[in-house]
């Protein structure tokens, strides 16, 4: 079983996978050539695992954020059971970011989606902000969970994964 984390550069995809993975995360980090506030960025994929039983595991894939690596998006999306889009709330147009990933991943998502809003630490009125994202998802006919997430906190990432798993289960 496979879940895919996607979202813009610096939204916390690599960190989220690292936070919960049972194995050391396999990363393809490189020094960015474009102007970014971070030292390294994912260029191919991140890979982590949650061990479920002797024969079963949950595979966690992280995509590169930049559009120029979008060839990897398609490769990683094949066979995925669920998608987690992380949105950096501090970016100038976070809804535009969300649009880009919804449009590019919509043919794979099949409504098996949760949206994590990161970098919300200083936002007091988070409820209003979440409503904005939820309303936006409805334009794409998605009824996904939108949860504020600190990718460094395991309990936050786990809650996000639980929400996704329960949403998939509810459809069975």
């Amino acid at each position: 079983m496979k879940f895919v984390f996607t979202g813009c550069v610096g939204s916390g995809k690599t960190e989220a996978i690292k936070t919960v993975s049972d194995i050391p995360v396999i990363s393809t980090e490189a020094i960015p050539t474009d102007y970014l506030s971070k030292k390294t960025t994912t260029v191919a994929l991140d890979y982590g695992e949650l061990h479920l039983s002797k024969n079963n595991k949950l595979e966690l894939y992280g995509t590169p954020g930049q559009r120029r690596f979008s060839y990897m998006w398609e490769i990683l999306s094949k066979g995925a059971s669920g998608f987690i889009i992380l949105v950096n709330h501090q970016r100038e147009n976070p809804l535009d970011d969300l649009d880009m990933y919804l449009e590019n991943f919509s043919k794979y998502i099949n409504n098996n989606l949760v949206v994590g809003i990161t970098h919300t630490e200083d936002v007091i009125r988070i409820t209003k902000e979440l409503t904005m994202y939820s309303e936006h998802l409805k334009k794409y006919n998605f009824s996904a969970a939108v949860l504020p997430v600190d990718a460094r906190r395991a309990c936050n990432v786990i809650t996000l994964l639980q929400a996704l798993t329960l949403s998939i289960e509810e459809k069975l």
């Binding site: 079983m1 919960v20 949650l50 061990h51 479920l52 039983s53 079963n56 949950l58 395991a154 309990c155 786990i158 809650t159 994964l161 639980q162 798993t165 329960l166 998939i168 289960e169 069975l172």
Partner: peptide, 14 residues
């Protein structure tokens, strides 16, 4: 059963 296993694992981690 696989989803159940995922949920059990996530609950355990939490």
């Amino acid at each position: 059963s696989l989803l159940t296993q995922v949920l059990q694992k996530l609950n355990f981690l939490k």
